[in-house]
Design a protein around this nucleic acid. Structure first.
Length: 711
RNA sequence: AGCGGGGUAGGGUAGUUAGGAGAUCCCGACGGGCUCAUAACCCGUAGAUCAAUGGUUCAAAUCCAUUCCCCGCUACCA
């Protein structure tokens, strides 16, 4: 059976972080590996999306050609995927000539069929640069609320959608000069013509995940409108029509066609030019699309409409989209310094550990959270302790005891029958879930069998049977080996290289003969000759040597109430980004509620909760006190988001557990001159280190003298 | 403001589409077992007013309504 799997093309304008991988690529790779184990013929395509404004902006900043930027990240992405064992058949580029040709074919087909209509638009034109500017490059005063920094597409203050012409005193953000509004012509794709056909098609997609369907229906409900597919920009695929020499095709239209051009390029490179055609034109072939949630409407509305317009192309069979994987509750962001890139993580952690953790934590149902501590914990306990140790204890027992494992149907007992039926159930559930792209559920049924297998081995106690009933011992060992063979085969899509290692160690005859395939999960014909080996995994120990025991976070005061039974105390509610906390603070003599509201402050988030005069305090806010003045600590950068972790020096908090007030005092938080400015510092390992978040240091809101203690 | 997602034991989570078993699993705490194994594995105990309020129902974490709180998107970006 042939299957086409397309993954949203990552934008070549920055490094990949775990959120990208968990959003679309790892689940696709797992799906593809599984399908290949089942003997299916998969074409697995993705590539770099290289066009679009952001890349030109980066290029302008660095004063290089946009191609330099996209090439840099294309290479980097290729390496990241390779390092993670995510193996596309082709990872193409939208700057390849074959891509432009394919885009041209689509374009001309639409053009000839009257699906592209010319419209005049009025766009801002910067006379200083002599070119049209994107709407968001224009800034001015909002006509509705008077906000002076409203953007041309939207006002950040009142949230209203704007047209750049509506702005009072518009100016170009690059030059500060007022733009002219000039007429410019563009071609519009007649999306609305496909509305009925799309709705009809969507009605057949009862098996799609609710998030995808809800998003799509909502989008259509608000009305499909014709969309411009050309724009005034110099970077992109040329428009193959006279009078459009200065314009390029809009990326949203062109990047999607990258799936087709990628498949064609792969076919040509492998010397079978027509190979791709069956995947797109044979209606028996199912087409799967993987992406993050932001990409849903492009794949459930625009791309299907384009394929409908082309006529004979297969429409997507399943469109699956994950939510976001965040970093400690905040969105991964290279520019804001939140989280790590995949390549940074791979320097510390084996690829299979990363794959396992991300798969375990995939944001399939809702957003999930990434952290190195959690990664280490999950990998050490579930992958290594439970599974790795199971494989190792079984194979090394067999090797050391020199018992030949042999299945004997006549001495099957109840526990044997139970575990074998559990194994069959697990394999069936696993298949069902992977096929439905419910990767986390598949992994759960695998983990359940790991647990059951450990339990079985414990109950079997072959170390006792060895002396009392060698025949039964040999029989139980054979079943145990069969279990880890099945588990390792099932684990292959998740942790490919480790899985192969396991099967080699246990001396699986089927594996030697057929390579990894799904038949490994069948008991019949299984034979094993385990070899002596080291434990299959080394435990992770990456969280250490860090003296920072303070979990400090940026908080924003959202509510202040008087404590009902204490004259000096406030009850303050603090927004911590991914949650809020109530703290009791003795600030009534120093601040009025109005002064506190909206302020960004630092919260100690791993302090033991306590009741202060009957009210729960879930942390402590930091304030400096020099004996005269009490002042809250102020983050140097007021744009810093609530929930942002505060580092001490370069140390990020990454242990766990609550501390008490006495422990907090050991950090000796105080105010001290750093480079001529009074800063909040802590003492760790006899070293004075400044508190900082997103690169900014902290001072106090009110002036306090150097040496003031922070409490 | 609009749209999307969320609030379940000390922490992290599953379950919510199709309402009913003791609400799942991991870490952490406590007790026991085993000794093949990487201080690992197995068994058990404690710990949750399933955000709040109201409603539908014989029955609600799950359905409906209202409210509160959080995140994301609406600036390129899974």
């Amino acid at each position: 059976m042939k299957i086409l799997v397309n993954c949203a093309l990552p934008y070549a304008n920055g490094p990949l972080h775990p959120g990208h991988i968990a959003g679309a690529y790892l689940n696709a790779d797992i799906f593809v590996r599984y399908q290949r184990m089942r003997g299916n013929n998969v074409l697995f395509v993705s590539g770099s999306d290289e066009h679009g404004t952001p890349i030109t902006i980066t290029a302008e900043k660095e004063k290089v050609d946009p191609y330099v930027i996209s090439s840099r990240f294309h290479e980097e992405h290729l390496e990241t995927f390779r390092n993670l064992d995510i193996n596309f058949d082709i990872f193409s580029r939208t700057t390849y000539p074959e891509h432009s040709e394919t885009v041209k074919e689509f374009f001309m087909h639409f053009y000839r069929n009257g699906l592209l209509k010319e419209r005049m638009m009025v766009s801002p034109f910067c006379p200083t640069d002599g070119r049209f500017m994107p709407d968001r490059y224009i800034e001015g005063t909002c006509p509705y609320c008077g906000y002076t920094q409203a953007r041309g597409d939207q006002c950040d203050n009142c949230g209203r959608t704007l047209d750049p012409q509506e702005l009072i005193e518009p100016r170009c953000i690059l030059h500060g000069t007022p733009p002219e509004f000039r007429e410019t012509k563009h071609l519009f794709f007649q999306l609305e013509e496909f509305q009925d056909q799309l709705l009809e098609w969507l009605d057949t997609k009862t098996f799609w995940k609710p998030n995808v369907m809800a998003f799509t229906r909502n989008f259509i409900k608000s009305g499909l409108k014709e969309r411009p597919i050309t724009r005034d920009i110099g970077w992109g695929v040329r428009v193959p029509v006279e009078g459009y020499e200065d314009k390029r095709i809009y990326v949203w239209f062109e990047a999607l066609i990258g799936y087709v051009s990628g498949a064609r390029i792969y076919s040509r490179e492998t010397g079978q030019d027509d190979y791709w055609k069956d995947f797109y034109f044979n209606p028996e072939v199912k087409n799967y699309y993987f992406m993050g949630k932001d990409n849903i409407p492009f794949h459930t509305i625009i791309w299907p409409a384009m394929l409908m317009a082309m006529g004979k192309y297969n429409l997507p069979y399943l469109v699956t989209a994950n939510e976001y994987m965040n970093f400690k509750g905040l969105k991964f962001s290279k520019s804001r310094g939140i989280g790590y890139t995949v390549n940074e993580i791979l320097k510390l952690v084996d690829r299979d550990y990363v794959r396992f953790y991300l798969a375990f934590n995939l944001p399939e149902g809702g957003d999930s959270d990434f952290s190195l501590e959690d990664l280490q914990n999950r990998v050490n306990t579930e992958l290594i302790d439970k599974y790795g140790n199971l494989v190792h204890r079984i194979t090394s027992f067999v090797v050391n005891s020199q018992i030949v494992p042999e299945f004997n149907v006549e001495i099957m007992d109840e526990t044997d029958r139970t575990i074998l039926s559990q194994a069959a159930d697990a394999a069936a559930n696993f298949s069902h879930h992977v096929e439905a792209v419910e990767i986390k559920k598949a992994l759960s049924s695998w983990l359940e069998l790991v647990r059951q297998s450990n339990s079985y081995f414990n109950d079997s106690a072959p170390w006792t049977l060895k002396k009392t009933d060698p025949k039964r011992c040999s029989h139980k060992l054979h079943i145990s080996l069969y279990l880890i063979q099945a588990l390792s085969a099932m684990a292959y899509p998740f942790i490919p290289s480790s899985s192969v290692g396991m099967l080699t160690t246990m001396g699986s005859k089927k594996f030697r003969e057929n390579g990894i395939n799904w038949d490994l999960t069948e008991l019949a014909g299984s034979e094993f000759t385990p070899v002596k080996s080291d434990p299959p995994f080394r435990k992770l120990d990456i969280i250490k040597g860090n003296p920072n025991f303070l979990d400090l976070k940026i908080g924003e005061i959202v509510d202040v109430k008087n404590h009902p039974s204490a004259d000096r105390l406030y009850i303050i509610r603090v927004n911590m980004g991914y949650r809020s906390a109530q703290v009791v603070a003795g600030l009534r003599q120093h601040y009025s509620p109005d002064q506190l509201l909206g302020r960004k402050i630092i919260i100690v988030d791993n302090l033991k909760w306590s009741k202060i005069r009957g009210e729960e305090s879930q942390g402590m806010l930091l304030a400096a006190d020099d004996g005269k003045t009490v002042s809250l600590l102020s983050p140097g950068d007021t744009a810093v988001k609530p929930g942002t972790p505060v580092k001490i020096g370069d140390y990020e908090y990454n242990t766990s557990g609550k501390i008490d007030i006495d422990k907090l005092k050991e950090a000796k938080l105080h105010i001290e001159e750093v480079d001529g400015t009074r800063r909040a510092v802590a003492v760790l390992d006899n070293e004075i280190l400044p508190l900082n978040a997103s690169g900014a240091l902290f001072s106090s809101y009110e002036e306090v003298s150097s040496g003031a203690t922070v409490r």
